[in-house]
Simulated scan of single mutants.
Amino acid sequence: MEIIVLPDADAVAATAADIIEARVRRGPAVLGLATGSTPLGTYAELIRRHRERGLSFAQAQAFTLDEYLGLPAEHPESYRSVIRREFTDNVDFAEGAVHSIDGQAEDPEAEAERYDASIAAAGGIDVQILGIGTDGHIGFNEPMSSLASRTRIKTLTEQTRKDNARFFPSPDDVPHHVLTQGLGTIREARHILLIGLGAAKAEAIAAAVEGPLAALCPASALQLHPHTTVLVDTDAASRLEHTEYYQYTHSQKPSWQAY
């Protein structure tokens, strides 16, 4: 893992956008896109660079991370709708290049298998963006998820439903079940960007980065990944014990070494 502690959310968004832009400008790229509030700054920065710098996604594909089970695709809080509203409809992805899990599939298990196969058929994810839940979940892989899991159905914890209730008219409207890429699926991405913002995420970041590898903190599975970049603001880094080391290694990063 490379842990980068930055002053604030704007600096995190700019650094994440730097990494994604570098990959997109190298040629056709496959991006893994997370929803939720954490990556919104990154998406806003990428949209700005598209409009002001000519950053093009015309040769890119994208796969969303998860979806509520049973929520209509056109629902404003379906992740299919959210990712298009917050990011992909504001840049120049080609028609059909943004792929989402079908939360209304008649056979969700078959849909999960189809989705993993479609990622593989696209050549795999080049850069996967991830947020982290207050309990350490990534995607909708809740605590005690298998570290080798594939895309599948999961039941949300009450904490996750509570965290997501702000996006719905009432907490009762938050679905109980989802389809999510599994931890094994996520770890097949060539480069993972884990973003943590704010003091509420500090304990989860510390457990993921410096804690033991354990299903209790699903994000700790990224310790097994050969190329994970963890981007955190100072508040999210407040529970880390080795911040000085992370800051030192980042300041001494060779100019020729990419993220």
Results as ranks from 00 to 15, higher is better:
Ile3Ser: 05
Asp8Tyr: 07
Thr15Val: 06
Asp18Glu: 14
Arg23His: 14
Arg23Gln: 14
Val24Asn: 04
Arg26Tyr: 09
Gly27Thr: 12
Gly27Glu: 10
Ala29Leu: 08
Ala29Tyr: 01
Val30Glu: 05
Leu31Asn: 07
Gly32Thr: 02
Leu40Val: 12
Glu45Gly: 08
Leu55Lys: 04
Phe57Ser: 00
Ala60Lys: 04
Ala60Met: 02
Ala62Lys: 06
Leu69Arg: 15
Leu69Gln: 13
Gly70Glu: 10
Leu71Asp: 03
Pro72Ala: 13
Tyr79Lys: 00
Arg85Trp: 06
Thr88Lys: 01
Thr88Glu: 02
Ala94Met: 12
Glu95Cys: 06
Ala97Gln: 03
Gly103Gln: 02
Gly103Lys: 11
Ala105Lys: 09
Pro108Arg: 10
Glu109Cys: 00
Ala110Gln: 11
Tyr115Gln: 07
Tyr115Leu: 05
Asp116Pro: 05
Ala121Val: 10
Gln128Leu: 11
Ile132Phe: 06
Met144Leu: 14
Ser149Thr: 15
Arg150Val: 03
Ile153Trp: 05
Lys154Cys: 08
Lys154Leu: 10
Glu158Gln: 15
Gln159Trp: 03
Arg161Ala: 08
Asn164Gly: 08
Arg166Trp: 00
Phe168Tyr: 09
Asp172Lys: 09
Pro175His: 02
His177Ser: 08
Leu179Cys: 08
Thr180Val: 00
Gln181Arg: 12
Thr185Glu: 03
Arg187Leu: 05
Ala189His: 06
Leu193Asp: 00
Leu197Cys: 10
Ile205Ser: 04
Pro218Ser: 10
Gln223Lys: 15
His225Pro: 05
Leu231Ser: 04
Leu231Cys: 14
Asp233Pro: 02
Thr234His: 09
Ser238Cys: 09
Leu240Asn: 09
His242Lys: 15
Tyr246Glu: 08
Tyr248Leu: 15
His250Ser: 15
Pro254Thr: 14
Gln257Tyr: 14
Ala258His: 13
